[in-house]
Structures are given as structure tokens and as C-alpha cells.
Design a protein around this nucleic acid. Structure first.
Lengths: 230, 230
DNA sequence: TCATAGCCTAATGTATACAATGACTATCGG
DNA sequence: CCGATAGTCATTGTATACATTAGGCTATGA
């Protein structure tokens, strides 16, 4: 992959998710290029990607702004994600093989260890969580579905959500993954679908609750959360 | 909007959909730039968009190829589109206002006139069809949903499909739109959803049938559209 | 004092030149 | 004769300079 444009993408996304760039703030290509230490060309490419992920909004005249997500937008996004991941789970349940299940199991255990340690490693949790869900997509064997879920919005939202997870939330996530695995072992599409639906719906409520209570403190502290690029 | 990159986008998409560029064919930026009469910069932007729409596939090493869609991929895409448009219809039924319904009605009548004339104007049909569905999205009042449906795949597929529509197909499409309007007038989400689901499902079968019967003749004639000299 | 028009500034769109990287080929050694 | 390696060619990635366009600011007139 291209080094400069990826760095730019990661840095800008980081700025947005960490709150360094406020919602609705105007974004200048030149300024970003300087901050990222690259030219405008890769910055423009990064902005395109971020726009596709809905992290950036463009005015009629092509000026870029940080997208301002209402809670309704976030809920709708969760529901769309639910729609698609649910479908992926159903397809995967029919097609998944032993090797894939085993890989999922490994990631799920690693994911639990990451947060069970004395010092929970959220970053590592996200890493394994991502792989876990990626294998489901792989097993769903649908290029259009994969492309849709891979590109749009989901991950930023997931990441933001997990920042707000408590220890119990993380444990519950781990258990729900276990149930998914059971459904996959049985190759039971209906079960897998249902578990996935609940999994994502719960995540939304966790997000919503945390969002409500943290909203004020978020505005006050400039945020220290680091974000991993792909 | 940017003139050059839009032209490039339109031209390249056209080449792909018309079959001038064969499935799996390698795409060179330089060559395309020359054909489109623009520099590589807007071509690169166009390729990004086309990649997001899954009309172009990129190798691990970033070389571009025309995507080769299996019938299964197309079906899956139709189902995903159905999932999303169905949802949009449901939301729209609750929120749509009289003005929007009226605009839809106008487009639907124009759309019928376009193909009822002595010489059916498919292009015009598509234009009004697009507006008709765009108003539903507008009425659904969901930014994430709109973005998802607007960007990904749908339109190219729709266009390819309509190429295969017979006169009766087009008339039926018109009538189904009418039924959608009735559901919207009643603000009946369940009805709107059901009609939309049927509308899209029928479109898929029309596509599939036409695809089947044309497949052989397609394979036999080596494509009468010349490949550009290099 | 307010509104409008024109200029000026700043930001985006495009072209081109250059750098880096992958692919292909030819030659040399086994 | 086959395979591997190195060198060359083609293609993509990045930077920069230039064109174009939107938006704001100021000045002038009513």
C-alpha cells in the first residue's frame, strides 16, 4: 500500500476520532498536508476515503468538514450494520469450515486475555475483535457484502464504542462471541443470525448510554485515545 | 463538481458497462487519461470511485482490472439493495410529505412517457427512475442509509438491468411505482416495504433471465467494440 | 446606515515532472 | 535445458506548480 496516503488517512482519522478536530470543523487540504508531512495529493486521497466512511462531509462547493453525527445517525448506522452483519452471519453459518471456526476461537480467546490482564489493552482487544468478525465475512463468501461492510463507517463506530466499554461489557462481548461460535459449529443460520443481531444491538445501547453520560466530560478533556491504522 | 474527474468517471464507467472494456481487462491509468483527454490525476480519482462501486478491482500491487461479476454476485447485490431500499421505503412511508409524493408522481409519469413513445428513450427512463427512487431516499431522512445506497454499486447494476427490459417490463415497473405511491399516500410502512421488495426482486429476475439468454450470443461475438490501441 | 458590486484572497481542481516499486526478460550458471 | 538472478521497462505514488472558482471584504452610492 501507499505509504504517504495511508499515513495521512490514519492521522486524519485519528484526529477526528480523538476529538482533536471538532465536529463541523472546516478542513483545509493544505493545512492537513503540512501537519501530516506529506503533499496535498495523498491528503486528497485520504479525504476521499474518509468521506466514503462518512467521517467527513463535503459542502456543495467541495469544502470538507468533520461530520457531525447525531445520536440518531449513530443508531441508524448500528441498525444498518446489524442488517448486514446479521446477513453475513447467516450466510457464514451455512458455509463456515472447521479451520475458520478454530481461527475465530483463537482470536476470541486472545481478545479476552487482552482485557483480562491487569492492565486491559483495548487496542489489542479491537485487533482481535476485528479479525474475529473478518473471518465471519470471509466465511459468508459474498464479495458485495464484504465490500460494503468493510468500507462503510462501521469500524470507526465500533472503535468509538469500545472506548466506552466497561470490563463487564468486554466480558459479555467475549461470551456472545462464544455463542456465535456455538451457532457456527452447529451450522445453524437462524441461531447465528439471532445472536449477531443481539450482539450488535447491545453494542449500540452500550454506546448510547456511555455517550449520554460522557458527553460533557468528553467536551472538556481533549482526549488521549490513540487509534490504530490498518 | 469537478469537470474533468466527472467526465473521466462517466467515460470509464461507460466503457465498462458497454463492454468496451472486457471483464478482467487490465486498466492503465496513462492509457485511460489519454482516451479521456485529461491527465492522470482526475483519472485516479475516477478509478477510486469506480473501485468503491465495485466496478473495478485492484490487485495486491494496486493494478486495476475491470471487475468480473458472477451471477451470484449480482444476485447478492440485488438482495443487499433490496434490504436497504426496503428499509428506506419503510422509513419514507412514515415521513413523506405531500410535495414529495407529488414530485414522485411527476417523475413516474415522465418515466412512462419516455418509453411509451414511438421510440423508447431508455436513458430518459433511467433519469426519471433515478429521481423517483432518490425522493424515497430523501424522505427516508437517514444520512447513513442514503450514503450507502447512493454510493455503492446500485446504479450501474440498475442501468445494466434496464438495458434488458422489454416494453412490458418497463410498463410493469411503472405500475409498481404507482403502487408504491399509493402506499406512501396511506403512510403505510408495511405496504411500502412489501411493494419495494417485490419491485427489486422482479428486477433481479428480469436481469437474470436476460443474462441467461444473452450469455451465449455474448460469448460468441468477440465484442464488436474495439479495444483501444496502446 | 444598509445594500450591492467588484476585487482580492484563499482553497480546491488539474497537469506535469519525478520517485519508487513491481513485473518482465534475458542471460548466465548449474 | 531449466532455473535463478539481475537489470531494464512499465506503471503507480508523490510532489509541486498552475488554473479556476468560491467566498469574503471593502468601498461606494443611495
Amino acid at each position: 500500500m501507499s505509504r504517504a496516503s495511508d499515513r495521512a488517512y490514519a492521522m486524519i482519522r485519528n484526529m477526528i476520532l480523538s476529538g482533536e478536530l471538532l465536529s463541523g470543523a472546516k478542513i483545509g487540504e493544505e493545512a492537513l498536508a503540512e501537519q501530516c508531512g506529506v503533499s496535498r495529493t495523498p491528503v486528497r486521497e485520504a479525504l476521499s476515503r474518509l468521506e466514503a466512511e462518512l467521517l467527513i462531509r463535503r459542502s456543495e462547493t467541495q469544502r470538507s468538514f468533520v461530520a457531525d453525527w447525531s445520536l440518531e445517525d449513530v443508531e441508524e448506522t448500528f441498525e444498518l450494520r446489524g442488517l448486514l452483519e446479521t446477513r453475513a452471519a447467516r450466510r457464514a453459518a451455512k458455509r463456515i469450515n472447521w479451520g475458520q471456526i478454530e481461527r475465530m476461537r483463537i482470536h476470541n480467546e486472545a481478545l479476552q486475555k487482552a482485557v483480562a490482564a491487569d492492565e486491559p489493552n483495548t487496542q489489542l482487544f479491537l485487533e482481535h475483535n476485528h479479525h474475529f468478525h473478518a473471518i465471519i465475512l470471509e466465511a459468508s463468501a459474498s464479495a458485495p457484502l464484504t465490500s460494503m461492510l468493510a468500507r462503510i463507517v462501521e469500524r470507526p463506530i465500533v472503535n468509538r464504542t469500545v472506548q466506552n466499554f466497561t470490563f463487564e461489557d468486554l466480558q459479555r462481548s467475549f461470551r456472545e462471541h462464544g455463542e456465535l461460535l456455538a451457532a457456527f459449529e452447529q451450522h445453524d443460520p437462524a441461531w447465528a443470525e439471532a445472536v449477531m443481531a443481539a450482539h450488535i444491538r447491545r453494542a449500540f445501547h452500550t454506546y448510547a448510554n456511555a455517550h449520554m453520560s460522557h458527553r460533557i466530560s468528553d467536551a472538556q478533556r481533549p482526549s488521549d485515545t490513540a487509534q490504530a491504522a490498518e
